[in-house]
C-alpha cells in the first residue's frame, strides 16, 4: 500500500515581475513552496520582500502575472485561471487592505459570492434561510452585529471591522486554500484574538492556509505548522514555529545575514 499525501498548494520556481517596460521589477524570484492539506504555514519577511505580490500572483490580480515557474492547487494550474475561477476552486485571499464597495450591502455581496462559486462548481445555490442562519452564527463568533452586515461592504468600517469582515467572509465561503495577508495589521489585541479564533476554527484536514505577516504576534494565536522566511523574492529559510520567535528576537537582519 502506498501512502500518498498530496500537496494542496505547490509553487515551483515561481517568478513574477511587476510594472511595465523599463519600470518592471522582479519581485518574486524563483520561489518554491509546498503547503500540504491540513497545514497552516506562515510566511514572514521584511517590507518589500514580495509578500503581498505573492498573494496577488496566486489570486490572479491584473498586473501581477507570473513570468516563470508554476503554481498548482491540488494538481491544477492556478496561473491559467481567471481570479473568479481560482476562487471557485477554493482560493481565498483575506486582503491586507479590504476594498470599499459603495452601495452593495455585505449580505448581498457575500451571498452573491457564495452562489457564484457554487454555480461555477455546478452546485445548488444556498437558500436564503440557510444563508441568513449561517451568517448569524458566523457573525456571533466574530462579534459582528447584524447592522454591520446590512451596511455597504467596508464603507465607513474601521480598520479592525474591515479585517473581521474578511474573516467573516472566509468563514462563510469555507475555502480550500486561504491566504491571510497581514490580517493582524490594524487589529487591537482583543480583535486579534477574535480573528485568530475564527481562523483556528477553520483548521481542517482538507484545508490549507498561508498566513502572511510581518510580526510574530499573530502567530502566538495561530500556531503555524511551518514558518518560511521570504526575502528578495524567494524562501530563504524554513523552520517550525520557533523560527518566528527567533525572527522576533533577532530581527530580519540577523536571519538575512546568516543566509545570504
Amino acid at each position: 500500500m502506498t501512502l500518498y499525501i498530496r500537496g494542496m498548494l505547490k509553487l515551483d520556481d515561481l517568478s513574477a515581475r511587476v510594472g511595465e517596460g523599463d519600470e518592471a521589477k522582479t519581485i518574486l524570484n524563483g520561489l518554491s513552496l509546498e503547503v500540504p492539506a491540513g497545514e497552516v504555514h506562515a510566511i514572514m519577511g521584511p517590507n518589500g520582500a514580495g509578500k503581498s505580490t505573492l498573494s496577488y500572483v496566486l489570486t490572479g490580480r491584473e498586473g501581477y502575472e507570473a513570468s516563470a515557474g508554476s503554481a498548482m492547487l491540488e494538481g491544477e494550474d492556478l496561473l491559467a485561471m481567471e481570479p473568479e475561477e481560482r476562487a471557485a476552486k477554493g482560493v481565498f485571499l483575506s486582503f491586507q487592505y479590504p476594498v470599499e464597495i459603495p452601495g452593495v450591502p455585505v449580505m448581498t455581496f457575500v451571498r452573491a459570492a457564495m452562489n457564484a462559486q457554487r454555480k461555477a462548481r455546478g452546485e445548488d445555490e444556498i437558500s436564503a434561510p440557510d444563508f441568513i442562519k449561517k451568517a448569524r452564527e458566523v457573525g456571533a463568533k466574530l462579534k459582528i452585529d447584524a447592522d454591520m452586515l446590512k451596511r455597504p461592504v467596508n464603507v465607513g468600517f474601521s480598520g479592525g471591522e474591515k479585517k473581521r469582515l474578511e474573516i467573516f467572509q472566509m468563514m462563510m465561503i469555507e475555502p480550500r486554500f486561504a491566504i491571510l495577508d497581514e490580517t493582524d495589521s490594524g487589529l487591537d489585541i482583543d480583535a486579534l484574538k477574535t480573528v485568530a479564533d475564527g481562523v483556528n476554527a477553520l483548521r481542517s484536514p482538507d484545508r490549507a492556509m498561508l498566513v502572511i505577516t510581518h510580526y510574530q504576534r499573530l502567530l502566538d494565536h495561530i500556531r503555524p505548522d511551518k514558518v518560511h522566511v521570504l526575502a528578495k523574492g524567494r524562501i530563504i529559510k524554513t523552520g517550525g514555529p520557533e523560527l518566528a520567535e527567533q525572527l522576533e528576537s533577532e530581527g530580519y537582519d540577523g536571519i538575512l545575514g546568516e543566509v545570504l
Partner: peptide, 17 residues
C-alpha cells in the same frame, strides 16, 4: 478584483458595481 477574488465573474462584478 476584490469581487472577482470572492468568485463573482467579471461581467457580474461590473454590473453589480
Amino acid at each position: 478584483f476584490y469581487m472577482r477574488q470572492r468568485g463573482i465573474p467579471k461581467a457580474e462584478a461590473r454590473a453589480l458595481l
